[in-house]
Nucleic acid binder design. Structure first.
Lengths: 181, 181
DNA sequence: GGCATCATGTAAATCGTTACATGATTGC
DNA sequence: GCAATCATGTAACGATTTACATGATGCC
């Protein structure tokens, strides 16, 4: 049961939206807000080959094009893997250690799972965030004033604020998503 | 010129605050808001040895303790390396690809560099964030409404909001830091 | 006596980074 | 003709993850 990296899921999700080449995917990572992913060939081409070996995507040489483009398409097994990943519970671990992966998952929900799965996802996210923000606030009340360095205390406050922003975003998202059910 | 990982800098910064053992450092990563770092022995002990090999820290067996604790202490060369890292310019790359490292750097500023270096750091951070937020907003105006999936659009908005939160945090931090100059 | 915690390590596997490399095509 | 871009790769290296491993100590 080989694990799947964030990059691999990102590729899988993008290929689910459109069949495209490695170069197209690289351009997406270079020129869109998905730019926190690396667009280097040394990461993307090997990742595509790994996905192909697992049977999650398949390559087809684009013959009408003069250039030697390999267009990748997601397979049924790939779509199943994607949906499994998207359907997982949102845990505290996701909040603390896998924020980026969490938002990636969220971005791919629509079109791949039913709206009620999306709503459950957001609900779990709100619940986990509430719990964690509470925990951080309590920690800060206890230890924050004792921190000697200003920048250390401010950095901590920045961390709390960022989770609070996520929380209020998630609450707003929940409302918007519930409206057009 | 071997590169230094985030984990290595985190260890270096913590050892600058207090000489301590690998186990102590692991507990910090396990039980404090620095928990986004891994507390696994397989990452920390090898990282400590790498730092030792570079002469940035040195180990001393704690003899009064019954247990075989190795207490690490930062060296002069280590402190120099730390300060070099802390004094680097804040770039757009830091904002886009190295947010976490950036906040780690910020947290360690006090006590290691003069207050004016800290203020310059925050100024550069504000400037880079302003630019990037502007860029993201323009991108969203152009392409946001065309995004088919609700969750895709919402995820993008979440990203923008998180940068906006950082920006307003940085502005507030700048004011607080300037006050007690 | 036994369990949790203290305390440090090693080994295998793998992913991503960086750098190098090649050749075709489009546009000026 | 030349530069930029299209398009795909390989190779070396290093860091982290996961799992395995050991032994001492404090406490009930």
């Amino acid at each position: 049961m080989a694990t799947t990296s964030r990059l691999e899921f990102a590729l899988l999700g993008l290929l689910q939206q459109n069949a495209q080449s490695g170069y197209d995917l690289r351009k997406t990572f270079a020129n869109t807000p998905m730019r926190h992913f690396s667009d280097s060939p040394g990461s993307i081409y090997p990742a595509l080959r790994r996905l192909e070996e697992r049977g999650w995507i398949s390559a087809k040489a684009e013959d009408d094009s003069a250039r030697k483009r390999q267009v990748y398409r997601i397979s049924a097994a790939g779509k199943r893997a994607l949906i499994d990943w998207l359907s997982q519970r949102v845990t505290r671990e996701d909040i603390v250690h896998r924020q980026e992966e969490l938002m990636l998952r969220f971005a791919f929900l629509d079109g791949n799972v039913e709206r009620d799965v999306t709503l459950r996802f957001v609900d779990q996210m709100v619940a986990s965030l509430e719990e964690y923000v509470k925990e951080l606030r309590e920690y800060f009340k206890k230890f924050g004033p004792g921190v000697a360095r200003d920048t250390g205390r401010l950095a901590f406050e920045s961390g709390i604020q960022s989770y609070e922003t996520s929380l209020s975003w998630a609450r707003g998202a929940r409302k918007k998503l519930a409206k057009n059910l």
